[in-house]
């Protein structure tokens, strides 16, 4: 499955300043390892040592927070858009 990943500014140094990256992955968990392979260092920024997404990082698949889906096991379809968004203050 080829998906498009939107990379937030603080991480674009690791993607040669690209705001979007194409990735092959069946799930978010696969996507995270694929990102680390293609852009070394990116995975570490997004996940802790156990591979769990850090608590200040939000992942969305086509506008839906993965915590309302199946977390890192959320399946991906061809053409899905995955956003990586830091937590934001309100209101």
């Amino acid at each position: 499955m080829t998906v498009t990943v939107l990379i937030p500014t603080p991480l674009q140094k690791l993607t040669q300043n690209q705001g979007t990256v194409q990735c092959e992955a069946q799930t978010i968990a696969e996507l995270l390892s694929s990102l680390e392979t293609n852009c070394p260092g990116l995975g570490q920024r997004l996940c802790d040592d156990q591979g769990t997404p850090r608590r200040f990082v939000n992942f969305y698949v086509n506008n839906e927070d993965i915590r309302f889906l199946q977390g890192v096991a959320t399946p991906l379809q061809d053409g899905d858009e995955v956003s990586i968004v830091p937590a934001i203050a309100g209101g």
Binding site: P8, P10, K13, R45, F56, I88, A89
Partner: peptide
């Protein structure tokens, strides 16, 4: 003008 840590995404 920056709100997120580049290393750990913390505020």
């Amino acid at each position: 003008a920056q709100h997120v840590c580049e290393y750990c995404f913390g505020p």
